[in-house]
Design a binder for these strands. Structure first.
Lengths: 192, 192
DNA sequence: TTTATGAATCGACAGATGTTTATTACTAAT
DNA sequence: ATTAGTAATAAACATCTGTCGATTCATAAA
């Protein structure tokens, strides 16, 4: 406990990269069959054909692994769509759509609020994207761009999560449009 | 596992209420001394002078207890301030201030995103308050009041959480004002 | 007051967690 | 090719988890 996770990057040793990739893949496979809470570290290690002690060499617990995996996969999904920041509102809608899609295809769908470390780990990723966009946009001085990015990221996630939990969902594209309308004032000001 | 938490209300048996209160108090006391993750169910039961099996009679795990405790305490804090919904913007600022204060005086301050079931459990409470306020306000037809409430609640929480994690914080009142400016368009529309 | 209900206790259980120590095996240098 | 560094393995550990069955005790009713 209280042990820090070594950064996902900064390593060239192929053994480390291989182990982490195998652990993430193993978790992804297990999540298809059963709930995250019902998966033990032993099972993950077995599925990855690694020793259990090796797991703890890389992640302090299974939550850390899940968070790392979620971050990697969401970044992949976003990068695959190659969002451009030429149009700010379009970028916001694209990101919102990405979050909706990610939640929809995300393995494991916890109804309980307490059990959502998996999904929630995409918030910092979204936050970084907003910050990057605001930097290009060139915000007025005095307004806290980082704060706006944080607030918008949480707002988008909360809205997308609600959509995801709704039984008869509207299409993700439609939801993304709604999110854009609600959240754009947070990022771009009440005007416009 | 997969066992549902019996609702916090709906019981009149004084034994049940007493046990749950003692468990919450015990957890609150232990959280002063150590991290949530380092507290075992046995310790909680000991501090509450209850048997460990009694704990599992009321909560499926310690996360559920923490969430219940958080909800109760936040509601208390808000009710103590007796927020009126006569002025919508004022109500939003008051709620934002309540969330900031709650986080600040909240026991346990997890830096890790994965470890925040404790604090996050106030989001549904805030959401309900927004919904109640919007119902009084009388929203235009076609707009989804519940969705706006959810989005705003997550936005407020995310902003307040960021403020709470900042080393040299500005006063909570000042932060609440910033939050109001950012989030009010989500609830009341971009106009105004 | 007696009684039926069910809350609380106790002991025990298999399995999981996170850590440690010692050993082996691989990698990236010289 | 040798070697220093370190990742991976293995076995063992104390502790924690969630559950169970049997028993005792408190409460609200008759």
């Amino acid at each position: 406990m209280a042990q820090l996770l070594q950064p996902e990057t900064g390593t060239t040793d192929p053994r480390i990269l291989r182990s982490r990739r195998m652990l993430m893949d193993a978790l992804a496979i297990l999540l298809i069959k059963k709930e995250f809470e019902d998966i033990s570290v032993q099972e993950i290690a077995d599925e990855a054909t690694l020793n259990r002690a090796t797991f703890y060499l890389h992640y302090p617990d299974k939550n850390a692994l899940l968070q790392a995996m979620t971050g990697v996969r969401f970044r992949d999904l976003i990068e695959r769509r190659a969002i451009t920041f030429t149009d700010c509102h379009g970028a916001l809608r694209s990101i919102a759509l990405g979050v909706c899609d990610y939640l929809a295809e995300s393995t494991g769908c916890p109804t309980q609020l307490a059990r959502m470390p998996p999904q929630i780990s995409i918030i910092p990723v979204v936050e970084d994207m907003f910050k990057e966009g605001l930097a290009l946009h060139g915000t007025a001085p005095g307004v806290d761009a980082a704060l706006m990015a944080t607030t918008a990221a949480w707002a988008v996630f909360g809205a997308a999560r609600r959509w995801f939990q709704t039984p008869n969902r509207i299409p993700a594209e439609e939801m993304a449009a709604k999110i854009e309308i609600m959240v754009s004032p947070v990022l771009f000001g009440a005007s416009q």
